[in-house]
């Protein structure tokens, strides 16, 4: 296929956190994201999974330059976004959008749905008249399944699912190329999650969107993604095509996450070898040496504590960061 649309190389986001005493303040970097690389082609969906606090949201925001990256590169059509000035960044934003987790909090409570959806148009298509904007907004509302007659309503008058549709309409109105969905359905009622996920998939197909879909729900990620990346403490554990990852996960962490997904068939569930995640997520201020997962890994050896696992993998496009990935798979 063609050039990757997005090429992320060794992206790091560190925050200085004061750990010393009151006067002799020592700063320790909090490694929210520590050297993540991946690329994306047009029309592809990358699912990003991991427990909360693993750097998923940081990754999405750092890719869109909503958070400053400490180091690394985000190449968008060959241009490094981290080096752009304000003006260049604004121009790039036209093609990159985000859908947030909390639908109500992501909408300005003092603006009408129509004004919220129109905001990107006003920022980027200043030449449009108000009537043209209104027509486009109503069109977009219909496309995301909102009643166009509701343009003048305020966010608090909509349900959570409807608010998320407003958020999606705002993200889609400029016809972006890349959309980051940061846990777009986890704040919603279970009954409407599927609708919103299907809407995102429809739009993705119709507009040939490239999508980064962040979620802690492995079933939804499996439904929507072409490829999946597993994060733990700001580092990549495994990245593979969806089918390879779900059928033959190589990393113990991926296996543990998959083992925790409820299976509808009780016989199958019992037959399945379980890896149970024990212990707490270590503090990202003080990550374990060597492999960051070793404190909770059932396969950890002394090698894991000393050497950081390199990038290896069973075949092209399936990468694992684990010393013992060749060991027999424990989960399905």
């Amino acid at each position: 296929m063609s050039e990757p649309l997005l090429d992320v190389r060794d992206l790091k986001v560190h925050y200085p956190v004061r750990t010393g005493g009151f006067l002799h303040g020592a700063y320790t970097p909090l490694k929210a994201l520590d050297g993540v690389s991946f690329d994306l082609k047009a029309g592809e969906t990358l699912g990003i999974v991991g427990e909360s606090g693993c750097g998923k949201s940081t990754l999405g925001r750092a890719v869109l330059q909503l958070l400053p990256a400490t180091s690394g590169a985000v190449a968008w059509l060959g241009r490094n976004l981290t080096e752009l000035d304000t003006k260049g960044l604004k121009a790039a934003r036209e093609h990159m959008q985000i859908v947030f987790q909390d639908p109500l909090a992501s909408l300005d409570p003092r603006m009408t749905a129509g004004d919220i959806i129109a905001e990107p148009l006003r920022n980027f298509r200043g030449s449009l008249s108000n009537t043209e904007i209104k027509a486009k907004v109503k069109d977009m509302m219909a496309r995301v399944g909102l009643h166009p007659a509701m343009v003048n309503r305020y966010p608090h008058e909509f349900s959570g699912g409807q608010c998320q549709r407003i958020g999606i309409a705002r993200a889609m109105i400029l016809g972006p190329k890349l959309v980051v969905c940061d846990e777009p359905v986890s704040a919603l009622d279970v009954s409407i999650r599927a609708q919103v996920v299907n809407l995102l998939m429809e739009l993705q197909r119709a507009m040939n969107l490239t999508m980064i879909f962040i979620s802690h729900d492995l079933s939804i990620v499996r439904h929507i993604s072409h490829r999946v990346m597993v994060l733990y403490l700001g580092k990549t554990m495994e990245i593979a095509s969806r089918d390879a990852l779900y059928a033959a996960p190589r990393h113990p962490y991926t296996q543990a996450l998959l083992a925790a997904v409820p299976v509808p068939d009780p016989v199958k569930a019992r037959a399945r070898a379980k890896i149970v995640l024990t212990g707490e997520l270590p503090s990202p201020l003080n990550p374990p040496s060597g492999c960051v997962f070793r404190t909770r890994c059932p396969r950890a050896t002394s090698l894991c504590a000393e050497v950081e696992p390199p990038r290896e993998g069973p075949d092209a496009g399936h990468d694992v960061w684990c010393h013992h990935w060749r060991a027999p798979t424990l989960a399905p």
């Binding site: 409570p109 749905a113 496309r143 009643h147 003048n152 309503r153 305020y154 008058e157």
Partner: peptide, 20 residues
């Protein structure tokens, strides 16, 4: 949804109630 919308286009806009 788009045909649905076509039918609704004619419908009057509902006035919202702002926080103010």
């Amino acid at each position: 949804t788009s045909t649905h919308a076509g039918a609704l286009e004619a419908a009057a806009e509902v006035e919202g109630r702002s926080l103010w």
